[in-house]
């Protein structure tokens, strides 16, 4: 090959590389741009509400009567509703998700491990409307009868359904974190005369703690942002609940249920977008906390030679 030809080949190679880099850059930029546009839209449609009422009245007002005359836009009952179902869902999903992760990552024999992993993946793939349907038709009536309640669609029902949705997130992310614990730590523990369970509790879980906490927080973020399930099984009452068998109306349910009937750019319309902003801020906070934890507690590797 002549020198000319080689030069030409190098040039085309170089041009290709630049083209590929730009292509990737373009798509990365595109997703950022899209996110930015959505945010812009959210704020443009939500912020006008605060010409009518103050932020404090909006956040902490206890009456949500957006269609009354005069309307009231207090979303405190909706926030409490969201937090209540998320809290109780976490109470169920965190222990179950973590225990299953530990079992899958450290204890289960290979075959059972594979089976469990596919079941959990299946759970993650379950459409939320199916889950909501299940809650509505099976769990709801059962709760109503067993506990003699006015309605089986309540915090309890929604929490259980949300927990089922959050478990796969918590379990598979925690499992990854547990797998990532270096083998050297485990060997060191065994060589010091620790049993398997002592090793899991004292070495593996602590070493995976940052990843595990991230998993928990992302699981909770998933629960708080979930819409269809709570729309179907939380009961829909925009009142501050007094017990776990009370019906609630989480923010997501409110937005989904009412957006269709709110007149374009009415107070109600703006209030629903403002609720969306609150939801966005909460989820963002969850993600930032998860991020902070995973950076803050990340252990420097063992081989700092």
């Amino acid at each position: 090959m002549s020198a000319m030809k080689i030069r030409k080949n190098i040039l085309t190679l170089h041009a290709k590389e630049i083209a590929i880099r730009n292509l990737f850059g373009f798509f990365a930029f595109l997703s950022v741009l899209l996110l930015g546009l959505i945010l812009l839209f959210l704020f443009r449609e939500g912020l006008p509400l605060f010409k009518k009422i103050s932020l404090a009245d909006f956040l902490f007002g206890t009456a949500w009567y957006p269609t009354y005359e005069p309307p009231e836009y207090g979303i405190w009952p909706l926030i409490v509703g969201s937090l209540a179902v998320t809290f109780f869902a976490s109470l169920i999903a965190v222990p179950l998700g973590l225990l299953s992760a530990v079992y899958i990552a450290e204890i289960a024999p290979t075959r059972i491990k594979e089976i469990l992993k596919s079941i959990i993946e299946l759970l993650a793939g379950l459409p939320s409307v199916v889950l909501g349907f299940f809650g509505m038709v099976i769990v709801g009536p059962w709760l109503q009868e067993t506990f003699d309640l006015p309605t089986g669609l309540n915090i309890m029902n929604a929490s259980v359904m949300l927990a089922i949705m959050a478990i796969p997130t918590i379990s598979s992310l925690s499992e990854d974190a547990l797998y990532a614990v270096p083998r050297e730590f485990k060997e060191a523990s065994y060589a010091l005369g620790a049993t398997k369970y002592e090793t899991i509790i004292r070495v593996i879980i602590p070493a995976a703690l940052s990843g595990v906490s991230t998993a928990v927080i992302l699981g909770m973020a998933r629960a708080i942002g979930e819409t269809m399930v709570v729309l179907m099984v939380a009961g829909g009452a925009a009142a501050i609940p007094e017990g776990i068998f009370d019906a609630v109306r989480p923010m997501t349910a409110s937005i989904a249920a009412e957006m269709g009937e709110a007149p374009f750019r009415s107070g109600h319309y703006h209030a629903l977008f403002a609720t969306g902003i609150v939801l966005f801020v909460i989820t963002l906070a969850f993600n930032l906390i998860a991020d902070y934890i995973s950076n803050r507690f990340r252990e420097t590797g063992s081989g700092t030679l």
């Binding site: 270096p182 050297e184 730590f185 060997e187 060191a188 523990s189 065994y190 060589a191 010091l192 005369g193 620790a194 002592e198 004292r202 070495v203 602590p206 070493a207 252990e299 420097t300 063992s302 081989g303 030679l305």
Partner: peptide, 28 residues
Amino acid sequence: RQRIGMVFQKPNPFPKSIYNNITYAPKL
């Protein structure tokens, strides 16, 4: 393993404090 200790090729302290590394086995 409690009576026959082992030191590995690659140093493998636990990601814990120096103190807790030493007390690991005695506490167990």
